[in-house]
Amino acid sequence: MLARKLIKIDDSWEMSYNKDTSKYFKPNTKGSKVDDPPRKQLPAADQRTNQGDTQEVETPLLAATRTGVIELVKVILNMHPQAVDHVSHKMQNMLHIAASYRRRDIFKLVKKMEIPTRRLIMGIDEKGYTVLHHVADTGNYNGGTRPGPAYQLQEELQWFQMVEEIMPSYFTQHHDKNNQTAKELFREMHQKQLEDAQKWIKDTSQSCSAVAVLVATVVFAAAFTVPGGNDEKEGFPLLLHSPFFKSFTLTDVVSLSCSLTALVMFLSIVTSPFDLENFHVSLPRRLTLGFAMLFMSVLTTMLTFTSTIILIIQGEHRQEWTLTLMISCIAFVPVSVLALTHFPLFPSFITAWYTILKFIWNAPPFRFLHKLVHRYLPSKDQ
């Protein structure tokens, strides 16, 4: 309530600089540097002196953008929409600041305002930076929101692509005062992060490959040592008609398939080139799918083990369900530990499995099934 009252009477943004800076576009690296944009003298009430001669100003809208308070940004833009065109003493508009501090929610909010966005995206600050240069610069980067260096680098690449898509194609070739394009600056600023991501994803893939091999070995051996043994005459499993035996068979097959798929994914990562572009989609996607398959293989391995124990207990002590339940709970301790240690990656797991199921659902056999269902089953209206 207080913020709304203060914003309603605030006019400090009127004292800031709002001149168009797109004329400082510089596509040429040969020769001179970008000229410094002229500064506007600000009223004394709105000036703060730094080292005696630098006049600093930051409007409430820019301050809210820098700190990521999107609620205040919405209120200010609603009451004073013209404030979006005003910039700081560094010639930075709110898109510069949102890009620099990785305020994606605010960036998307401004992006919906099509006409202001077209003007703001052409802004150039006192360093000769465009909005895309601020995405490339890591001066205000705080590590991102995703776990692991590879996923953090992917987040930065996706952020760069999202901003690049709304910029005019020719404007992406602008060179700053150091004669660097945004892509060149991105490569330079993210070199250390790239090295960390390369080491992390390689070590992780090698470690997970060993686990996948271990799980595959265990479930492969379990397929030939069925619980209850086999009939000496015909060779069929003695507990073949038990529902838990079917559960044992199904989970054993799924576990083997998932563990081998995870192994293939991790090996494909280890043998891939670790270029910067590969961290945009290819390598993180393979790692996520590998993690998801490995987690599923461990889960189904525990289900296989539980089915085996229940079959044995049923044969000897049919009434001891308390013991069965206790053993089942203990069997899921490894799965629980794996889930807790990789909890930040769970959204990635869910996304990976959604992608897999969507791919299967859209496969030709299922598409044919869709047509049959829609053709022969009555609709709700009928």
Rank of each mutant, 00 (worst) to 15 (best):
I7L: 08
I7F: 10
D11S: 12
Y17I: 10
T21P: 05
K23Q: 14
K26Q: 14
K26T: 12
D36Y: 13
P38M: 09
K40I: 13
L42D: 02
E58Y: 09
E58N: 12
V69E: 13
L72Y: 11
P81A: 08
S88Y: 05
H89E: 10
H89P: 02
M94I: 15
Y101G: 02
I106F: 00
K108A: 14
V110A: 13
K111A: 12
T117E: 06
I121F: 02
E126P: 00
Y129Q: 12
H134Y: 01
T138V: 11
Q152Y: 03
E164I: 02
I166R: 04
I166P: 01
Y170K: 08
F171S: 08
H174V: 03
K177Y: 01
N179M: 12
E188I: 06
L194I: 05
E195V: 10
D196I: 00
K199G: 01
K199F: 05
C208S: 13
L214Q: 15
V215S: 01
V218L: 10
A223P: 00
V226I: 08
P237W: 01
S242P: 03
P243W: 10
T249H: 05
T249C: 08
C258R: 07
L260C: 09
L267E: 15
I269P: 02
T271G: 15
R286Y: 07
S297M: 01
V298D: 01
V298F: 03
T300W: 05
T304R: 02
I309N: 05
I310A: 05
L311W: 02
S328I: 02
C329Y: 04
F349L: 11
L357A: 15
A363K: 03
F368A: 15
L369C: 11
V373K: 09
Q382N: 15
